[in-house]
Design a protein around this nucleic acid. Sequence first.
DNA 1: AGACATTACATGCATCTGCATTCAATGCAC
DNA 2: GTGCATTGAATGCAGATGCATGTAATGTCT
Lengths: 133, 133
Amino acid sequence: MTRHKTGNDVIDRWRELLLRHATVSCALERELGERHGLGVSEFEVLDRLAEGLSTCDVGGKEKFRVQELADEVHLSQSALSRLIARLEREGLVTRALCEADRRGVFVLLTDEGRKRHAEAAPTHLEVLTAHLG
Amino acid sequence: MTRHKTGNDVIDRWRELLLRHATVSCALERELGERHGLGVSEFEVLDRLAEGLSTCDVGGKEKFRVQELADEVHLSQSALSRLIARLEREGLVTRALCEADRRGVFVLLTDEGRKRHAEAAPTHLEVLTAHLG
DNA sequence: AGACATTACATGCATCTGCATTCAATGCAC
DNA sequence: GTGCATTGAATGCAGATGCATGTAATGTCT
């Protein structure tokens, strides 16, 4: 008695995708939240910053423009702006003016941010492995 | 210059999943919204109702309990309750008391609801085919 | 029957999200 | 240079979501 008998490949694949996404997101949200006080989006941002693969890697490292991060984590520019604000309030990142183009803002990991990311990364990997392994 | 070189299979797959989900959801949200005034979740609910595969299919058809729908579309019970309220306000579904267990509420498609779903279904399929085909 | 736990759904509340707008800094044409 | 469009990010606002809670109906134990 398998539900979801749509008889349509594309729709079946979409539902499968929705199911996987919901299951994993939900598990991640719970584990990262309970064990490290981080949301999924928050972690993704910290993760990108820790990877330090920014295109505007001007000499230093881990410098990201807000819009660049937004693209990476699939959030709107405004959502990212506020997310950064939250992370900054928690002391995990800092905003730095971009001297070259003073409209821009660089986002940088603080030591505390790097620490929290390092703590949370194993949990992240563990949950993903459990669900996608 | 492929970004995302995490070197980790599980994380790569997770990011791939996030990307797919974001891309398709976003496209669906836009097309269903612009062309039919429906959100993705709204459509998913109408879709389940139109399929009429409820487990509490008591003689009639397309009768769903709220929690049953919530499971199907991966939303919390409270979110579903409000979603149903929106659909009811738009005249696409009706709430009916369940005589057998008067705590329960059945959700039923109205004619207008069936019509809107029939109109939107091709768009839905079209977008999915374009992205997952 | 009476007391208490459980179930099904609705609702108050805080948070997150996107859209539209705003504001400041740049770029461009002239 | 001046004027005007564009870009990068912040913010007002409305809508959606989840958690905790409320309320009513059932179930259970004695």
